[in-house]
């Protein structure tokens, strides 16, 4: 199977991973290297969100709760229970997967706004528990002293090896997401996204599909949460807020709803955007919000749509040049 037989999306995905791999040594500023690592972790979360929000079209506004429970399950397993690192990651996956099921079962009969509002309320409840259940979560002080991973003799304690491990995890999870997207489940998710009643009419069960998408999202958020905790080596409840849930949703929207390469582009670029806009000083967050509005209203296909148009434009340019050369 040659590279020509791959779809545009797949080529872009491979390209993004390669660019991200090459980018790390090219960035000289160590703070920017760290921002890039955060971008990869955000991409893990946003690829998870892609299942429920991008593919199935359900407004999931409790992403920060999923992510937070993942971080805390990992952190508590490896510190309080002294579990080995990867068992801690597994605990995070199971915990958030179950959380997805817990939220999904009763609520997914709800549609549209009602679901969105339920998830906002659910996210706030989880945040308040993380903040106030001090004997378990450490309250405002959070959990410190979290480890970086090892695999056999390989050490990932330093930032550079850990970055490449994160990237490898992202590549694997993206591959898995791509396979799910192209399976019959992916098609069913999209059917629910487009028209729930029609999906039901052809014999699909929208509620079960939505729960499945929620659990998949939970699995990814569990891994993302654990990796975030391991990256920061310290977690505290004030990051897992509604604003962060909104921000993660915005990454998906700006990347281009329903497109996997868009999800990764959106998360990495939006993680960097505040840094790029820093010269605007206190204005940068407001400008950031305004950019988000402009993209949603005037470029609903997001970065992915812009990318597709740009590549088509370059292709026609190249073709025209080839034609004139042929004529001469």
């Amino acid at each position: 199977m040659g590279i020509r037989s791959l779809s545009m999306k797949d080529k872009t995905l491979i390209g993004i991973i390669l660019v991200l791999a090459a980018l790390y040594p090219l960035i000289t500023n160590s703070y920017m290297k760290f921002v890039l690592m955060t971008g990869i972790v955000n991409a893990l979360l946003v690829v998870g969100l892609h299942f429920i929000f991008g593919l199935t079209g359900q407004l999931h506004m409790a992403m920060a709760a999923f992510w937070g429970v993942g971080s805390y399950a990992f952190a508590l397993a490896v510190t309080r229970l002294s579990w080995p690192y990867w068992l801690g990651v597994f605990a995070a996956i199971v915990a958030v997967g179950l959380l997805g099921l817990l939220l999904g079962f009763p609520t997914l009969r709800l549609k549209g706004f009602y679901l969105a509002i339920t998830t906002i309320g659910f996210g706030e409840i989880v945040r308040l528990i993380l903040l106030n259940w001090a004997p378990v979560t450490g309250g405002v002080f959070g959990v410190a002293g979290l480890p970086r991973p090892t695999i056999g003799p390989l050490q990932f304690g330093k930032n550079q090896p850990f970055y490449y491990l994160l990237l490898a995890i992202l590549a694997l999870l993206t591959l898995a997401a791509r396979m799910i997207e192209h399976s019959k489940y992916g098609a069913a998710f999209r059917a629910v996204h487009d028209d729930e009643l029609a999906a039901e009419a052809v014999g699909l069960d929208p509620t079960r599909l939505k729960i499945l998408a929620f659990v998949l999202c939970g699995v990814y958020a569990g891994i993302g949460g654990a990796m975030y905790a391991s990256l920061m080596q310290y977690i505290s409840p004030e990051v897992y807020t509604l604003e962060r849930s909104q921000m993660l949703a915005m990454m998906l929207v700006i990347g281009g709803m329903g497109s996997l390469p868009g999800a990764i582009m959106g998360s990495v670029l939006l993680t960097f955007l505040p840094e790029v806009l820093r010269f605007l000083q206190q204005w940068y967050l407001a400008v950031y919000g305004a950019i988000v509005i402009v993209i949603i209203v005037y470029r609903p296909t997001g970065l992915w749509g812009i990318w597709v148009r740009a590549t088509e434009w370059i292709a026609t340019l190249l073709k025209r040049r080839g034609d004139t050369r042929g004529a001469a």
Binding site: E243, Q246, M250, L285, A286, Y288, G289, V292, I293
Partner: peptide, 8 residues
């Protein structure tokens, strides 16, 4: 997005 903008 408007909510994010207004806050900021």
């Amino acid at each position: 997005a408007l909510s994010i903008f207004l806050k900021n």
